[in-house]
Design a protein around this nucleic acid. Structure first.
Lengths: 208, 208, 208, 208
DNA sequence: GATGAATGAGCCTTCATTCAT
DNA sequence: GATGAATGAAGGCTCATTCAT
């Protein structure tokens, strides 16, 4: 046991601590960006909130933009993973979309800070071109393509209204965001109610 | 008499000139903010594009934020006016909503610069609290209330799905924005196609 | 008369003032860089010494490096002009070199601050490669080439020791700098003594 | 006894190790400063190149400036030693100067990194006051005084042009540096050619 | 004693705002 | 009343130095 413990070498410790900082900084940045907006946020504030010095922050991230990109990269991946891994494929293409959406909503509801950033940068998917970072564009695009793929299957199966899949994906996400914002506003934490409302809306709007 | 008349004339001229400046600056600011984003835009650029000196700009507006607020105030009012004045009340509460929306879409399609700003600041209506100016919040809120009023009538008449009118209003606007962004992306200027798609979607989503 | 005076339009005034600032900043920068060294100097200090705000400095110059480059460009040109325009060609190729050098020495003796910078960056001509700006390299190189040209003529005329003209030019400049530094150290302002010493040395070292 | 012996050994080992570090750091610093320039060099780089940790570097040296000072101190002493120990006093005062210079040139030619630093800080001897460290000034001054001593002897013996010995010393060093830089530029490693050129120049310039 | 991760003071640069002309 | 040159506060980032492990 002692031997196994000793195997945690200096390199491992270093890497582990670096990862710890990374996580702390991302968490703090998410909070600060969500509260004050990206532009208005100061790196000094992010560092202070993360409980590290400015130099430490810059040892882990290349710059301010890099921090935002990292948030989008990390959370975007988690979001996509949450949605795709929970999509109930056995229940048919429509249920796959709906259950995937359930997971997607639950993930964002559980991450209110990222939700704010997600919404703040939300015009990315709404308006093709914008003044956001390439990383954000890439992240939203990936998510859109995946949703469009699921929608295409459902449309091909005749269980959803045939439309441009990308447009439908955008319409869906827009609705989700409104629902999520409404959920935040209510402040009752009723995730199940949220999921139910979203399901009802989606069935009406996309699968009549 | 001559003196009084001259005074009045002077005042009129002054007021007229101020209004001229105001219009030129707002038009320029709308363009610049749309192209570069609010934060990235410089007051110098706005003044230059408006063809006025920086000092003149600051004589008409209190600051950068005030210019953005003025855009939202002015266009927001126009937008609301366009929608409400074109709402076909005679056709019943549902048609009132639909025709009002038609006008709303047509107005934004005709003002691409404001459309971009509208979309950029679009999270305002999606997320109650944010790091946008109070004026923007107020403006979006006013629009929302009016839409909600029309929706309430339609719901009461049984021609629309009964839901929280404010939530429905937000869902509608979100869908509109996606449709508008898609319209911009297509670049074919097919406003009638846009209006048709929006109508079809609204009927599905809100009046099944 | 009034008309002629009126011809000094706003543009002229603007340009004149900009030139005034430019000169004041360059003079101040020369002083500060000479006293503290380029790296140790702060832009804030340069601006303060020039009696202008930081923003004004940056309206005239693109950055810190640009200020140094401008000094080298401006003074380098003046230096070359002083030397070449005073070179007595009628007196033969040797006298051309000597009289050109006289003017060169007198110019630098009259500009002690630039002299310091000139000496500080003096390794540029001594050592081909360095960590100085391309502009400095270009400036020193131009000066070297011109001197080498004069030396070649004198060597071809048999009045100077035949050697690699560029090496001889470097040896000459090095001697000049030492003499100039010595002149500065003496602090007696005896330029004629300086010129005489330089002439004597040059005749010994290059035209025995 | 054993204890005392152990203590002494411990001290010796400690001192030896410290000297080992010192040498490694100076060697690395010399290389890094030569390649990137003093200001642009980072202590991290110096430590890494020396193969020691940053903390070790700071245990041996007080700071960045101290490292540069140590280089000048160490190499300056070696340089002076090389020149004085090789000065052929038996051959007369002129030959003493010339042979001392030979050794001086050969030492620098053999230490290209220090040569670069030597040239970079070369304005120290050219200009009495500067923004270099007191240690550098002191080192160059010591060298100058020694050369001046040799020159005085030669002048007194009537084999060199009578002039201010310090000025002549500076002129000599300046010529040496140019010749050394030229030698570096040629890159042919022909030290004997360098020595010959320097001798010829010195005889012309100082002992006609 | 050695390490190198952590620190934070300080610098260059931008741009909203003011005010003398 | 209009102008736009001038201002200077504020922010992102670097790197010499320290100190807990």
């Amino acid at each position: 046991m002692a031997t196994r413990k000793a195997k945690t070498t200096g390199k491992d410790v270093r890497a582990a601590r670096a990862e710890l900082y990374r996580a702390a900084i991302l968490e703090a940045a998410e909070r600060v960006f969500a509260e004050q907006g990206y532009e208005a946020s100061r790196m000094q504030t992010v560092a202070a909130e993360a409980g590290v010095a400015l130099g430490t922050l810059y040892k882990v991230f290349a710059g301010k933009q890099d921090v935002l990109d990292a948030i989008h990269r990390q959370q975007g991946e988690k979001l996509i993973h949450a949605a795709t891994s929970h999509a109930d494929l056995a229940g048919g293409p429509l249920e796959a979309v709906l259950s995937g959406t359930d997971a997607y909503m639950r993930y964002l509801a559980a991450h209110p800070n990222y939700l704010k950033i997600h919404l703040a940068g939300g015009h990315a998917w709404a308006l093709g071109s914008g003044y956001i970072s390439p990383e954000q564009v890439r992240q939203f695009d990936t998510g859109l393509q995946i949703i469009a793929l699921f929608l295409t299957r459902a449309m091909d199966a005749g269980v959803m209204v045939r439309e441009d899949p990308l447009l439908s994906a955008r319409l869906m996400i827009a609705a989700h965001q409104v629902m999520l914002a409404d959920y935040v506003d209510r402040g009752d934490g009723d995730v199940e109610g949220l999921v139910a409302r979203v399901r009802a809306y989606m069935l009406r709007a996309f699968a009549p």
